[in-house]
Nucleic acid binder design. Sequence first.
DNA 1: ATGGGTGCAAAGGATTTGCAACATT
DNA 2: AATGTTGCAAATCCTTTGCACCCAT
Lengths: 140, 140
Amino acid sequence: MKQYTNIELKAELENAGIRGTAQRIAILGFMRENPVHPTAEVVFEALRDKVGSLSLTTVYNTLKLFVEHGLVSMLTIDDTFRCFDGNVEMHAHLMCRNCKKIIDMPMPREVATFLEEIEDFDADEVQLYVKGICKECKIK
Amino acid sequence: MKQYTNIELKAELENAGIRGTAQRIAILGFMRENPVHPTAEVVFEALRDKVGSLSLTTVYNTLKLFVEHGLVSMLTIDDTFRCFDGNVEMHAHLMCRNCKKIIDMPMPREVATFLEEIEDFDADEVQLYVKGICKECKIK
DNA sequence: ATGGGTGCAAAGGATTTGCAACATT
DNA sequence: AATGTTGCAAATCCTTTGCACCCAT
């Protein structure tokens, strides 16, 4: 997994037009380096001991800010939790109904074409969500 | 818009394995006859004066029950509201970020193929969500 | 010193749950 | 009678907000 330096992360934040504070660098670093789909709570628990000072409020506010600046995306695949994705490239998601694991998949090519063909609508985001049961849960 | 008789609605409920009470018939009728994507609150406001007795709690519980029995589907296109769709055929949704209107679209054919090709995962639902700005909001 | 950032505590809001009354078989 | 259904009120949970303090420029 690619590692990012604080310098790189700070530059990315400033390129996006926001200040590179310690909390933001830590949160962006976590999102970039971990190919998971964490909730704000998960990000907070992962970083609370690694960052000098960090509150759950800041994680919520920061992730929201990151979404507004296109640094991360928000997934609404499940109505019971809100999670985030540090990979903003267009891709699809599978979610296991049993273990709630979210798996990345390439987006079918035709979806990009579909987007371009939509009339009378300025699309800026597309999400393809598939739900079902993953292999591990099926075995049990 | 197709009209449904109470007899038809009751039969549909009973086919799904649940009792056809007055509240359920009214809610299912509303979902079938209105090609909108209402929240529980909207369904409640639309029916509260038309049904002898109806509570918001019952609307919540009933829509949840309907989803479990495949009578309606739940959309998670927006993280700030949960809405439902009386059309359970596979199709895509566009949502305007400004007016929050949700528009139905045919699902790109390749998505069905994509579903079949997924390995090690038993898919049972797919949602394609597109967000952007609708024509009416763009004009303003 | 000024504007933005953080974090605590409190508020907010949507949804669910406990439970008693009610309806249906 | 027994079981399922409804609806009120209360509880719950996630997220946002108000505000005082802090930091960086």
